[in-house]
């Protein structure tokens, strides 16, 4: 990324598009640092005095409501479901790419077809199942749902990543007399690492940001961070700064996860085994 490259017309366009996409996020952060009355003015007051009041409100300065339980709920739902998804999707993807089962493309299509029903169409039966099994307001139920929600995507992603593992490497390992476990650990895993990182990141983001299921199925104890975020919206009084502060804090873990995984991704790709 030299200066020379950045001045090319496409580079300028890329910068322009990039800024266009980042601008709303920056706007959110700026608004979160304004006082409620400055945040609500029209036209917006960009140069207004900065304050951390919105963040103080988020951490319960006036209501005394702690944001930690919902944040922890979100963390357990996202991490728990991501781990489950990986445990299930990696073997499935292996069976669909490296050692493909018969009619593996049908199987893949079956996985994809489970995503074809709009989520909202399933919400009522799922609610009733949760109610009759006593799983309403239970974080384990969300973990289960998020796992099944993300599993098809993860299988598809992992399959395409594992399909990249060159047959020659597997054959070479077989000739050297490597066992299945050794092959998986020493040959497949390093090549698949970027794929696993990308898949976990996507699953984590999807579950962290999920609102519909969380809003409908949780209540007093299992509420997640996005549900908590909406609780700042009121039809009487000002709330923009508070909501922006809450949105900023709640997007932080995703950003952190994103940067971490990006690092892994680049690392994994540059370790390319064939070149």
């Amino acid at each position: 990324m030299t200066t020379k490259q950045a001045w090319r017309p496409w580079g300028v366009l890329a910068w322009f598009a990039g800024i266009l996409f980042v601008l709303p996020v920056l706007w959110m952060v700026l608004t979160s640092l304004h006082s409620e009355s400055d945040a609500a003015t029209n036209p917006p007051s960009i140069a207004a005095k900065l304050t951390f009041q919105g963040y103080a409100e988020f951490f319960g300065a006036t209501t005394g409501v702690s944001p930690w339980p919902p944040l922890l709920n979100s963390a357990s739902a996202s991490i728990g479901s991501t781990v489950l998804v990986l445990l299930l999707s990696v073997p499935a993807a292996y069976a669909l790419s490296i050692k493909p089962v018969r009619k593996w493309s049908d199987v893949l299509f079956f996985f994809l077809s489970t995503k074809m029903l709009p989520v909202v169409a399933g919400i009522l039966p799922i609610y009733l199942v949760a109610q009759y099994t006593g799983m309403l307001d239970n974080i384990w139920f969300l973990i289960l749902l998020y796992t099944s929600m993300n599993l098809p995507i993860a299988v598809w992603l992992m399959r395409s990543f594992l399909a990249e593992v060159p047959k020659e490497m597997l054959e070479a390992a077989a000739i050297d007399g490597a066992s299945l476990v050794t092959t998986l650990r020493k040959v497949v895993a390093p090549v698949a690492m970027p794929g696993i990182a990308a898949t976990s990141l996507i699953c984590f983001i999807f579950s962290w940001n999920e609102l519909l299921f969380a809003r409908v199925l949780t209540g007093v104890v299992a509420g997640t961070a996005p549900v908590f975020l909406t609780s700042f919206v009121t039809s009487q009084g000002l709330f923009l700064a508070k909501v922006c502060a809450a949105a900023t804090v709640i997007s932080l873990p995703v950003l952190v996860a994103g940067f971490t995984a990006q690092d892994k991704l680049v690392q994994g790709l540059s370790l390319g085994a064939v070149k």
Binding site: M135, W140, L144, G219, V221, T234, S235
Partner: peptide, 29 residues
């Protein structure tokens, strides 16, 4: 098995305290 493991482990959590009540309310001042 995964499903039942989840269900089993989650059984203990829940607003079952006998001297507490749950209130759902609108966000007004």
């Amino acid at each position: 098995a995964t499903a039942t493991a989840c269900a089993g482990a989650g059984g203990g959590i829940g607003p079952g305290d006998s001297s507490s009540i749950n209130v759902l309310m609108v966000n007004n001042p």
